[in-house]
């Protein structure tokens, strides 16, 4: 990745950050901020996935999936090892929106947390394959190594009071696959 491209992204990131705070929305910024930068998701999908993940691992005294950048992990992996799951996400996310509108007449991201949980409980029952997929990917993005795009600043490892990055032995991270 060239420095030039990074700079552009940083500028856009700032703009979007401003826009987001101006409109009172709290969105996951991912690698480069929410917006037209997602590798696979549309902006709307990314917001929905972010909200789903945040219910799977919500913020409490410790950051939740959103702050940990889990949507960035999923989006990145959908261009790598999880390419095979692209269709499942496209369909699965649309289905979450459909259930949300059917039940509450609103987009998933516009629902109250309790309503979101209700929708996801329905999805868990009616579309168990997609629910298991996104649930497992959320756990991976939250508890797994930051090099894959999630667990920003090792938030989950800090929550578990584990040394991070590893202190015993040489801390050799794989620079090639590391996501900045």
């Amino acid at each position: 990745m060239s420095t030039g491209r990074k700079t552009v992204k940083r500028r856009k990131f700032l703009k979007i950050g401003l826009a987001a705070s101006a409109s009172g929305l709290l969105i996951s910024c991912g690698r480069t901020g929410g917006g037209p930068h997602w590798r696979f998701f549309t902006e709307e999908e990314a917001r929905t996935v972010d909200a789903i993940c945040e219910q799977i691992i919500p913020a409490d005294d410790f950051p939740g999936a959103s702050q940990a950048g889990v949507v960035n992990f999923i989006d990145l992996q959908l261009t790598r090892h999880y390419k095979k799951h692209r269709a499942a996400y496209r369909k699965g996310v649309a289905n979450v929106e459909a259930v949300s509108r059917e039940t509450f007449g609103k987009r998933f991201t516009e629902l109250e947390p309790q309503q979101q949980i209700e929708v996801l409980t329905t999805i868990e029952e009616k579309d168990p394959a997609f629910f298991a997929l996104i649930r497992n990917h959320t756990m991976q993005g939250y508890y797994g190594d930051p090099r894959h795009g999630g667990n920003r600043e090792w938030v989950s490892w800090k929550m578990l009071a584990l040394a991070s990055p590893p202190v015993r032995g040489r801390a050799r991270l794989d620079k090639e696959s590391r996501v900045s």
Partner: peptide, 27 residues
Amino acid sequence: PYHVVNYAPAYVPSWGLAHKEWMRNAF
């Protein structure tokens, strides 16, 4: 950490706040 995600017993939900709390308390 990811190993422990599915260690949880049946009485702990597999997602949501309760699962996260369990991870924190049980790890």
